[in-house]
Write a protein that binds this DNA or RNA. Structure first.
Ligand SMILES: [Mn+2]
Ligand SMILES: [Mn+2]
Ligand SMILES: [Zn+2]
Ligand SMILES: [Zn+2]
Lengths: 157, 157
DNA sequence: ATGATAATGGAAACCATTTTCAATAGCAAT
DNA sequence: ATTGCTATTGAAAATGGTTTCCATTATCAT
């Protein structure tokens, strides 16, 4: 059941229309799932959740919709090394904050962190300008991940 | 034909032995290919190159060896979004410098850059300490990539 | 040189993601 | 509300990079 704050069309309808995309139940459902979790869902995860409320939405559509959402910048796609893509809303009504990830190379756990984001942002800003000048590369996005051992996995050795 | 600087065993033999791994022709050949290129090779790329000199080395072995090399930290494994893993020597005799990547989201081109590395290193140092304290996460590695449009791809629109 | 066993390669299996294609649904114009 | 155009969809099949199996071979400590 799609959740809209207080009536009125969901916040992302505008962006959809702007790109000439149609608004469908499958897309509503998928965006709804993404906006109601803190986790990093795989396509199948999304599919299974959507499937509970909308059994007639297929996995193919989930893949296609996620692709589309990534394309218009509503969703980030990550590779945490477990062989499947992971998705996360890039922004939201409640305002998902920009963050980066710690990835445990032993158990695969992924931790969100927002610490140092300000420092990072500043560095990224400088880097983006410098790299843009030097390579004439127009930067639109960045990825920062730390790899290592989470607390649980450190004890086991 | 494995290239050793001036006779004597290749520089990485020590690290191999330390992990209890055996030194084989396939492994020598694969490391040799990696140390002679500036590119970001896929497993198949490595296989095809190795195959010229050693037709009896199989693709399976290439995968296994790359996995092993990543495991002992001699090689970095990347996902640039083209559906296959890319590999790069993490260090070398001539000293491959630590660097990060610019990835063109349109044509897939990957550009190495070493600029801002000093600033990054400093930030990373602070971040690693802070994150280590806060999450008790032992950081061993990091990944930084910028996404955007390369010079060529900007003109085309 | 010998033996224990790590390493290998070819074929088959795996499995996340993509492609195909006929049926359906969204929506702008009536 | 109806129509018509076409974007979207789902099921099944295909794809393709990577892994698994297993009998054979090669490495290396002794
Ligand atoms: Mn996250
Ligand atoms: Mn590189
Ligand atoms: Zn862990
Ligand atoms: Zn490009």
């Amino acid at each position: 059941m799609p959740r809209r704050d207080h009536m009125g069309p969901p916040w992302w309808h505008g962006r959809f229309r702007g790109h000439g995309y149609r608004i469908t139940v499958a897309r509503e459902a998928i965006l709804d799932v993404l906006s109601q979790t803190e986790e990093h869902l795989s396509a199948e995860d999304v599919y299974l959740t959507v499937h509970k409320s909308y059994p007639n939405v297929g996995l193919t559509t989930v893949y296609r919709t996620l692709e589309l959402l990534v394309h218009i910048g509503l969703v980030f796609k990550f590779d945490f090394g477990d062989g499947r893509a992971r998705y996360e809303l890039s922004e939201g009504p409640k305002g998902t904050r920009h963050h980066h990830h710690l990835v445990c190379t032993n158990c695969g756990r992924v931790i969100d962190y927002t610490d140092f984001i300000d420092d990072e942002i500043e560095l990224l800003g400088r880097a983006e300008k410098g790299l843009s000048d030097k390579f004439n590369f127009r930067i639109t996005n960045h990825l920062i991940q730390f790899y290592g051992l989470c607390d649980r996995c450190q004890k086991k050795t």
